[in-house]
Amino acid sequence: MLITVSGPPGSGKSTNAVQLADALGLGHVSGGDIFREMAAERDMTPVEFNEFAEEDPQIDRDLDRRLREIAVERDDVVLESRLAGWLAADHADFRFWFDAPLSVRAERIAERESKPVDRARTETERREASERKRYEEYYNIDIEDLSIYDAAYNTARWGPEPFLDVLVATVEAYDSATDEGKAPVEGVVYDF
């Protein structure tokens, strides 16, 4: 089973994707981890690397191509990235979208990265604007279009344990024998 988990920074996608993969006995691949490794290799913060990627489209294309290959070649994995749902639209058995208000996400990021909340909020807004621009330009993807997702959750409304229970129950209720929801999104040109 291939499950994708997508959402903006600080939405809880990494935390929940890891827990979901563990609960279901699946592997876990994080696009964010790969992106942060690429940024560190160039001695940049993720925000700086996002903006650098605006000038060098090959960065996104390399990352997205790698994630797309994982989506096509691997089974029994939770693939987590901002574009995971789009990258695996024609292969995923189930696609989740997680979100939370910016104020909540900024607090989570600030705590995780030991920085002031105002700084986390500003950096997150810059990062999201940069990513939104690139996804539209490179792939004609409107990241705010949630129509491809099977379930979308506001993670600010759930605690970690009850939310994991909801996610597991959602996946278990899913009838993997049906091909509904596996078709590519119409009108989207995939060029990863």
Rank of each mutant, 00 (worst) to 15 (best):
M1W: 13
L2S: 02
I3S: 13
I3F: 14
P8G: 14
P8K: 14
P9Q: 07
G10A: 08
N16L: 07
A17G: 15
V18H: 03
Q19I: 12
D22R: 06
L24M: 07
L24A: 05
L26A: 09
H28Y: 14
V29C: 06
V29Q: 02
S30T: 01
G31F: 06
G31V: 03
D33V: 00
D33P: 01
D33G: 10
F35E: 14
D43W: 03
T45E: 08
T45V: 10
P46H: 03
V47C: 11
F49S: 06
N50R: 04
E51Y: 02
E51M: 00
D56Q: 15
I59F: 12
D60Y: 02
L63Y: 02
L67H: 00
E69Y: 08
E69A: 11
I70D: 04
A71P: 00
V72L: 01
R74M: 08
L79M: 06
L79T: 02
L79E: 04
E80S: 02
R82Y: 03
L83S: 01
A84D: 02
A88E: 00
D90L: 05
D93M: 05
D93Q: 09
D93G: 13
W97Y: 05
W97T: 04
F98G: 05
A100M: 11
A100Y: 11
A100Q: 11
S103T: 15
R105G: 14
A106Q: 13
A106K: 11
E107P: 06
R108G: 15
R112I: 11
R112G: 13
E113W: 04
S114I: 08
K115L: 11
K115R: 03
K115D: 01
K115A: 15
P116M: 14
R121Y: 14
T122C: 11
E123N: 07
E123S: 08
R127A: 13
R134P: 06
Y138H: 13
Y138Q: 15
N140S: 07
I141W: 05
D142Y: 09
E144D: 15
D145N: 12
A151R: 13
A151M: 14
A152H: 12
Y153G: 06
A156W: 01
P160M: 12
P162K: 05
D165K: 13
V166R: 12
T170H: 00
V171M: 07
A173S: 13
Y174D: 09
S176P: 10
E180I: 03
E180Y: 04
G181F: 01
E186V: 13
G187C: 00
G187W: 10
D191G: 10
